[in-house]
Amino acid sequence: MAKVVHAPAKPRIKMTADDHERLSRLAASAMDRVPEVASFLLDELDRVRIVRGGSSKGEFTRMGSRVDFRDNATGRTQSVTLVYPGEADIEQGKISVLTPIGAALIGLSMGQSIDWETRSGALKRLTVLAVKVPEAV
Rank of each mutant, 00 (worst) to 15 (best):
R66M: 13
P85Q: 09
T81L: 07
A88F: 03
E91M: 09
G86A: 12
R66W: 12
N72M: 14
A73K: 04
F60P: 02
S65H: 02
T77C: 10
E87T: 00
D89M: 09
R66P: 08
T77Q: 14
E59G: 10
F60R: 08
G64Q: 05
A73R: 04
F69K: 10
F60A: 05
F69D: 06
T81K: 14
D68T: 12
R66F: 08
G86K: 06
A88M: 06
D68C: 15
A88I: 02
T74M: 10
G75Q: 02
S65A: 15
G86N: 05
V80A: 01
S79A: 11
V83I: 13
R70M: 08
T74I: 05
L82Q: 09
L82F: 11
E91Q: 05
Y84M: 07
G75N: 10
G64A: 03
F69T: 03
I90G: 14
T74Y: 09
V80R: 07
G86F: 08
T81F: 07
N72P: 00
R70L: 09
D89F: 00
D71L: 15
F69Y: 14
G75M: 06
F69Q: 10
I90F: 00
E91I: 03
P85T: 09
A88R: 06
T77R: 13
M63C: 12
S79Y: 09
R70Q: 15
V80F: 05
R62L: 15
G86T: 01
Y84K: 02
R76M: 08
G86Q: 15
L82V: 07
M63G: 04
M63R: 02
V83C: 06
P85I: 05
I90L: 06
